[in-house]
């Protein structure tokens, strides 16, 4: 049971990652791919934060009293990673908009077809 609870977070995170990666590869629509990418990344964020969680801990904002705090380092890393994620999303979407203008579609399958012609 302890193993189950102890690793449950990771397992669910793995399932989320799998779903995300599946969407990225399987989806043919570019926007859907980007959503998949976001899900994938977010799952990794949860993994990091889970690593840093300490049972009975609180948010690492020092109050002066001796307390158990959760690990602040993963938080910092993930803050950076979130920003990187949104930057990627913004850029990807801009590219998609341009692709729509250039090809008339945002579907990977259609784009490939139109190029092969």
């Amino acid at each position: 049971m302890t193993t189950f609870l102890g690793l449950l977070n990771y397992w669910v995170v793995i399932a989320l990652m799998m779903t995300g990666l599946y969407i990225v590869i399987a989806a043919s629509n570019y926007i859907k791919k980007i959503i998949g990418l976001n899900i994938f990344q977010t799952a990794v964020f949860i993994m990091y934060i889970s690593i840093g969680k300490v049972s009975g801990g609180t948010a690492p904002i020092l109050t002066g009293q001796p307390e158990i705090y959760s690990n602040p380092l993963p938080h910092v890393l993930i803050l950076t990673a979130i920003v990187v994620g949104v930057a990627t999303t913004a850029l990807g979407l801009a590219l998609i908009v341009r692709i729509r203008s250039a090809f008339g579609t945002i579907d990977d399958h259609d784009v490939r077809e139109s190029v092969n012609e």
Partner: peptide, 12 residues
């Protein structure tokens, strides 16, 4: 554009 987007997805 598509090359850049595919690179973006794979790269991410």
């Amino acid at each position: 554009l598509t090359a850049a987007l595919r690179y973006l997805i794979v790269g991410t």
